[in-house]
């Protein structure tokens, strides 16, 4: 167990370093965008006097590296600054949006992960039957279509034609939990369809891979029923790759949802990030990107720890 603890600490340290590098990259990437913040804020109808006044107010006349270090010293003390555009605290701007994104991601994950693993086990059990083929074709079709297209299809059939679900998922601030679930069902379903195939096929492949092993043959020869062979004998050894893929897809549910948010008008972090980039609102862009990067780092870490915990050989290296 000590080894796992050490590994977690080491990886967290590396994670912090990665975040620092990412923050530098993002800062200078924003600097490289054509046009400047004042122009982006005021748009076409900005006069030169307007622009000069706003530049002065935003402190854009200070050189870029100096601005970056100002931000960094603040960030280390937990102060991510204020939005350049609205002047609101970055934390209070992102907070509610992040909660919305996490809500949608958890909603989709709670449906997608068990469904994908169960379906994976079923198709492994019934491999090369018509059920296997149909499940594969359907999930692959879903993953191959762009998210916004899937979203439009769902809107067309489940909102416009039948009126079963709302087409736009504007979740009210005071909505109760079941209303929130109902309103955001279509975006959640879109994301379930997008991430299912990957996890299901990995489960299927990992299990089928093991079915050729001698110990599985032994179990079969003993007369163990097929489902028991898979669930009790094959699955425990297949967890490592499955956990990896699940972790990657969970990260995607949080970071890759911009298009889904746009199509369903869901007020999450992705939409905020797009707006912030368009207006060169560096503190918001920086904070969103760091959240996304941290999500990836933490979920990858979780996947590694999970893989070690489910594999006694990795837990007790010689």
């Amino acid at each position: 167990m000590n080894d796992v603890f050490k590994l977690v600490l080491k990886r967290l340290g590396l994670g912090v370093l990665t975040l620092l590098v990412i923050s530098v990259l993002i800062f200078f990437a924003v600097e490289l965008l054509p046009g400047d913040i004042a122009q982006a804020v005021l748009g076409q109808s900005a006069t030169p006097e307007n622009l000069a006044a706003l530049r002065e107010q935003l402190g854009l006349n200070v050189p870029a590296p100096v601005r970056y270090f100002h931000w960094l010293t603040g960030a280390i003390q937990g102060d991510f600054g204020t939005s350049l555009i609205t002047g609101d605290r970055v934390g209070s701007t992102i907070g509610p949006r992040l909660l919305n994104t996490l809500f949608l991601a958890s909603y989709a994950a709670v449906i997608a992960v068990p469904a994908a693993i169960l379906l994976g086990i079923f198709v492994a059990l019934l491999r090369n039957t018509i059920f296997d083929r149909v499940a594969n074709v359907l999930t692959l079709t879903a993953i191959s279509s762009p998210e916004f297209f899937l979203g439009y299809i769902l809107i067309l059939y489940l909102a416009v034609k039948t009126g079963w679900f709302p087409a736009i998922a504007s979740i009210g601030r005071n909505a109760d939990f079941s209303t929130m679930l109902y309103n955001s069902f279509l975006p959640a379903l879109t994301m379930v369809l997008v991430v299912m195939a990957h996890m299901m096929r990995m489960t299927r492949a990992a299990i089928i891979n093991l079915l050729a092993s001698p110990y599985i043959e032994m179990a079969r020869l003993k007369g163990v029923p097929a489902w028991r062979v898979i669930v009790h004998h094959a699955l425990p050894n297949a967890w490592a790759p499955i956990i990896n893929v699940v972790a990657l897809n969970l990260a995607y549910l949080i970071t890759g949802v911009v298009l889904v948010e746009v199509v369903f008008v869901y007020p999450g972090v992705g939409q905020l990030l797009v707006d912030a980039v368009a207006k060169r609102d560096f503190p918001i862009v920086q904070a969103c990107c760091l959240i996304f990067a941290a999500t990836f780092i933490l979920l990858n870490l979780a996947a590694d720890v999970g893989a070690i915990l489910t594999n006694p050989r990795l837990r007790h290296p010689k």
Binding site: Y152, I155, L156, V160, G163, I168, V265
Partner: peptide, 19 residues
């Protein structure tokens, strides 16, 4: 007032009685 920047989503919202 609801901001619906996506063109198709806006028309769909009108069609499905949300706006």
């Amino acid at each position: 007032l609801l901001v619906v920047n996506d063109d198709s989503a806006r028309v769909a919202a009108l069609q499905s009685n949300q706006v």
